[in-house]
Design a protein around this nucleic acid. Structure first.
Lengths: 233, 233
DNA sequence: TTCAAAATGTGCTCTTTTTTACCTTTATTA
DNA sequence: TAATAAAGGTAAAAAAGAGCACATTTTGAA
């Protein structure tokens, strides 16, 4: 039996995960001799411009991928959840990281060295096919985001992101309980591509319209249909 | 010798093309029994929501990929050039087209049936690896676009798109000659994610600043450094 | 070549979004 | 636990962008 964070049978690969249904031998190869690391809220996993030496598996937690421009404004490009792999794009493209990654909450992250990943990719065709499918799918999602950012108002963009975030935070809660989105207003602004003040203003509007409630920094969506109707006009 | 648009040795696979340096046998398989079709300016290649039955190769011309929202506003997601494949994302993701495609100018398009594509993908590892690399790279490009759209002004976005378009239109011209970007103001607006009036206004500014000249609808960039300095602050 | 349709161009108004300048509340840690 | 930093919140002015109405030019089909 190989050392590492394997066995992974207790792990839960959520939908959208590249590793879902991957043959056990391949998972074993992938996670051979790996160890899990604890990252505390806000800690950076990798930085834009660095050369990748492996990929990262989110065993538990949430990770933001973001870019920072000259003025220091941050744009969150993607929020990754438990069960997802991050950083493999740069490895496959043989390029430096195009964005940075940091954990949004205390998280357990497994580093998978480049060799592990490449070995599995070379010996089996399942991973390659799975990656192709995932990447192609993500492409469609990205095209959607692009149109959203380019054409829609801040209010509409925020409504959309709240719907998507709710899906991500759903996994943390037992069925029946309220889903609590726990993200700073600053991070929400970075995700929507606006400033904090705008997020605050729209959050206030949404509260008055009965769409959501807040418990401190936590956001609880009460009327998802109304939220969706904002996005779909 | 197989029938089809093969031999492709006269073709010019530009950088960024998935087919660059692909083994001749694989190209032969891919293009077996295919024929080239003429599309006239504005003609639609495929429409959002349709099921893919194959992929398309741009033998000559330019193609826009775009999404249309409820109000009829169009957002161009990508401009593909001679030598590029389009429509393979949907096939690999096993989903319907997430966007539509139409030719921006009279173009020669080759339809490659699904079976051809899948056969090559199954028999060889080169294409799969090439696709993974291309997709991963495009991902970084897309992340950049997203940050651009989310954080930058219309003026900055337009400046950036002009730089990118110039690269695409460069291929049509002999070295030394002026590169002429030939796109309707409406399409430029769809690409930048704004309205026609804004494009007109900024185009006027750019002319006054000596950045570019226009010849009818054609745009000739005279000072690319100034244009880049707008994007990079 | 003519003529209608489509595309380009301009000025003005109105709306949305950002910026600025604060105050208040919640976390963190010495 | 008090001090201090960080995050949350509000209002008003300034700037950017969208929408509208209409004139002009170009294009392409009869």
């Amino acid at each position: 039996m190989l050392k590492g964070v394997f066995p992974i049978d207790k792990w839960d690969f959520k939908s959208g995960s590249v590793l879902n249904d991957l043959p056990e031998e391949e998972l074993e190869m992938l996670f051979a001799h790996t160890t899990e690391h604890l990252y505390s809220k806000g800690q950076v996993i990798f930085r834009e411009g660095a050369y990748p030496t492996g990929i990262f598996f989110i065993k538990e937690g949430k990770v933001k991928k973001y870019k920072v421009d000259k003025e220091g404004r941050e744009q969150i490009v993607y929020v990754a959840n438990t069960g997802e792999l991050i950083g493999f794009h740069a490895l496959l493209a043989e390029e430096r990281y195009p964005d940075s990654s940091a954990v949004l909450e205390n998280s357990k992250i497994v580093f998978i060295p480049k060799d592990n990943f490449m070995d599995v990719l070379n010996t089996s065709k399942v991973l390659a096919r799975r990656l192709l499918k995932t990447l192609s799918h993500e492409f469609a999602v990205f095209a959607n985001s692009l149109a959203l950012f380019a054409q829609r108002s801040v209010r509409e963009r925020f409504a959309m992101q709240l719907v998507l975030l709710r899906e991500k935070y759903k996994q943390n809660f037992v069925p029946g309980m309220d889903v609590e989105i726990n993200m700073s207003r600053e991070d929400l602004a970075s995700l929507v591509g606006t400033v904090r003040e705008n997020i605050l203003r729209i959050l206030k509007d949404f509260k008055e319209e009965g769409i959501l409630e807040t418990k401190g920094r936590k956001i609880i969506i009460k009327d998802i249909k109304k939220l969706l109707s904002i996005v779909n006009q």
